[in-house]
């Protein structure tokens, strides 16, 4: 056999091996989280606040972290949508193709997308000191909003860029102003908005480094914006460092909960993308 065919065989094998390695990592992570988490994932865990002696292994749950995470994620996703839809609309509809400002905006958000959450956290912390805020729900929401706006803009822009020009021209020829085409545009980028939202929720709920500085941690459910808020990733992180096995088990359960949420978001995103991409006008 010629050398090149031997080489081909070897590298085909290596490629399959590499792909299997990725699967192996995936399997190992899911298996580890499921195996350690399921035994401790009880109804009490999800529905109870930490009781007295919770961090010594006594009873209670992580409802504080679940509630904190949900509030932060909900508020910042909403804020993120409100801020990023106009920006995407502006750079795609109002600005001409090849506009310097549009190019620069895209580049900036590409770059901001890569900035790690710990830097956002540190920045958020300086803002909070400037404004005289303590670690609070508001701080967490601000930082997470900043963190997910680039995700929103990048993934919506990806879809908005490919809106057919004919469709816009049709709207203009009927006398619509550029603003009025927003109804057409929104309908066209709806799947993009949905997947962007799911992506952002996933990143927002899993982020710990950003909220560590800004939202703090507490055993209670926050009822106003200036109270600190607990979050799921931090609940995992803090409890995992405990020497008491019961407490560590709760960390495993919280991690499993996080992973399940991420799994659901990811699968839902894929389904929505598949379903809606068929109905688009190219």
């Amino acid at each position: 056999m010629k050398l090149k065919f031997i080489e081909e065989k070897i590298f085909n094998g290596l490629m399959i091996l590499a792909t299997l390695t990725v699967f192996a990592f995936f399997g190992s992570i899911i298996w580890t989280v499921a195996k350690t988490g399921f035994p401790s994932l009880t109804w009490d865990m999800i529905t109870k606040l930490p009781g007295g002696g919770f961090y010594l292994g006594k009873e209670g749950g992580i409802l504080n972290a679940i509630a904190g995470s949900l509030i932060i994620v909900f508020c910042s996703t909403l804020l993120g949508l409100i801020i990023s839809i106009p920006i995407v609309f502006y750079i795609n509809i109002y600005l001409k193709k090849g506009s310097k400002l549009a190019y620069f905006t895209r580049l900036t958000f590409d770059v901001l997308f890569g900035i790690p959450s710990i830097v956002y956290g540190a920045f958020g912390f300086t803002i909070m000191i400037l404004l005289g805020l303590k670690t609070s729900l508001l701080g967490g929401i601000i930082v997470i909003t900043l963190l997910i706006i680039p995700i929103f803009i990048r993934s919506m822009d990806e879809v908005a860029k490919s809106i057919s020009k004919d469709l816009l021209d049709a709207a203009y020829s009927l006398g619509a102003t550029q603003l009025e085409t927003i109804r057409v545009v929104l309908r066209q980028i709806a799947p993009g908005i949905t997947t962007a939202t799911l992506l952002s929720i996933g990143r927002a709920i899993g982020d710990a480094a950003g909220v560590m500085f800004t939202a703090g941690f507490t055993d209670n459910i926050p009822v106003s914006l200036d109270q600190p808020a607990a979050t799921l990733p931090l609940a995992v992180f803090f409890q995992l460092s405990s020497p008491i096995p019961e407490v560590r088990n709760r960390a495993y359960a919280a991690a499993l909960l996080l992973t399940i949420i991420v799994l659901i978001l990811s699968i839902a995103g894929r389904l929505i993308m598949n379903r809606f991409s068929k109905n688009r006008i190219q």
């Binding site: 990143r203 899993g206 991690a255």
Partner: peptide, 19 residues
């Protein structure tokens, strides 16, 4: 493979740390 990569990309870093 693509859904698996999606999920890997979405798993929070604290879960990676735990693993």
């Amino acid at each position: 493979v693509f859904p698996v990569l999606d999920i890997l990309a979405g798993i929070p870093s604290v879960v990676y740390g735990l693993w």
